[in-house]
């Protein structure tokens, strides 16, 4: 029997009787990170990284949760479990599972580049690696964060010259904090949507240092937005809520902006391919560095990535999970809306 099986409730370790990122309620859930498709409500017990817990509680309310630092093993029914940085968002972790000399690693979502917030992705040697593949096609090749940040700042400065407010569309958990770090270097007039605000507060309360932001409320005077930067989640894009920023320009921050058609579909004035996922090269590097004999590929372009690995001497198989959509982990407005509304507690 495999150390980790693919069941209808999620990734299951029968030797330890626990699940990793289950999509149906279970007794024991090890959580890679706090995005809603990986961390779902209803589990009796949660195990996650210390920095994941605050947002997990914000989203899921009063839950029973145990936290770990990276590389701090615990035993669940004699199965050794430890977490390693995944570099995806704050607190995001890979889960290493060891039993009878066999090692499996579940990547969760990850990126290779160090964004200065989420910890540096650490390759973990293992026999079997379960990898995401959100951007698992060679057309996805990211510019460095430094270059993209320069593009964003240049765009914001241009908007300021034209007397426009810059509305940055970024996921409230992860992307928003990166964007904040980027623009805090050129302006201190940063306003955020309620969903971004709530995550911001949870992170501050947990001791993270973040640049100061102001929450947008119905009372905020419109004149305050002139030439300022707004950070808002995708669910706010195109809603009447945006009207108060007029005149404004919209910049969408997402790996999907790599493709012109996606940008045009979003009606964005600017698109920045700033992603919290590994690009094609990143995925290949990660897979190789684990030294794994067998790679299971989940959510994303799993069939292409898996086939490529097989053709290049790495045994691989695709696995269907309930993470993300088929290949649009975060592209779907519907998924993001649910996620954001949860974080916002309905306060959009």
């Amino acid at each position: 029997m495999q150390l980790i099986e693919f069941t209808d409730k999620g990734l299951y370790c029968s030797a330890g009787d626990f699940y990793i990122d289950p999509w149906a309620p279970v007794d024991k859930a090890v959580i890679t990170h706090a995005h809603s498709d990986h961390a779902r409500p209803g589990n009796a017990f949660y195990l996650c990284h210390t920095q994941t817990a605050p947002v997990l509680k914000l989203r899921l309310g009063d839950i029973s949760v145990q936290t770990l630092e990276w590389n701090e093993p615990v035993y669940i029914n004699n199965v050794k479990v430890s977490l390693y940085p995944a570099g995806h968002i704050i607190g995001s972790s890979q889960v290493k599972v060891e039993h009878n000399g066999e090692i499996w690693v579940v990547s969760g979502d990850y990126k290779i580049e160090n964004d200065g917030l989420s910890g540096t992705f650490e390759p973990v040697r293992c026999h079997t690696f379960i990898s995401e593949s959100t951007f698992g096609l060679p057309v996805y090749h990211w510019k460095s964060q430094q270059e993209i940040f320069a593009d964003i700042r240049q765009w914001v400065t241009g908007n300021q010259r034209a007397g426009k407010t810059s509305v940055m569309i970024a996921y409230s958990l992860g992307k928003a904090q990166r964007v904040l770090k980027c623009i805090a270097e050129i302006t201190d007039r940063i306003f955020v949507h309620g969903a971004v605000w709530n995550v911001h507060q949870a992170l501050l309360a947990a001791g993270r240092a973040l640049p100061a932001v102001q929450r947008i409320t119905p009372e905020t005077n419109k004149s305050a937005f002139k030439n300022a930067v707004i950070i808002a989640p995708p669910s706010a894009d195109g809603t009447p809520w945006m009207k108060k920023f007029n005149p404004y320009s919209v910049g969408v921050c997402s790996g999907w902006m790599q493709i012109r058609g996606n940008m045009r579909r979003r009606n964005a004035d600017a698109g920045f391919a700033l992603s919290d996922h590994a690009d094609w090269e990143g995925l290949l590097t990660a897979v190789k560095e684990t030294g794994a004999e067998k790679v299971f590929v989940t959510h994303g372009f799993q069939s292409a990535f898996s086939r490529y690995l097989n053709e290049n001497g790495i045994r691989s198989e695709e696995v269907k999970t309930a993470y993300g959509g088929e290949e649009e982990e975060q592209e779907k407005p519907s998924t993001s809306k649910e996620q954001e509304e949860e974080i916002a507690g309905g306060d959009i």
């Binding site: 057309v139 790599q258 493709i259 490529y308």
Partner: peptide
């Protein structure tokens, strides 16, 4: 086959080549 896969996702030959 991988080029094809990319082309069908990007939906534009000129852009696919530019990206690859």
């Amino acid at each position: 086959w991988l080029f094809e896969e990319c082309y069908h996702t990007v939906g534009d030959l000129g852009e696919t080549i530019a990206l690859l």
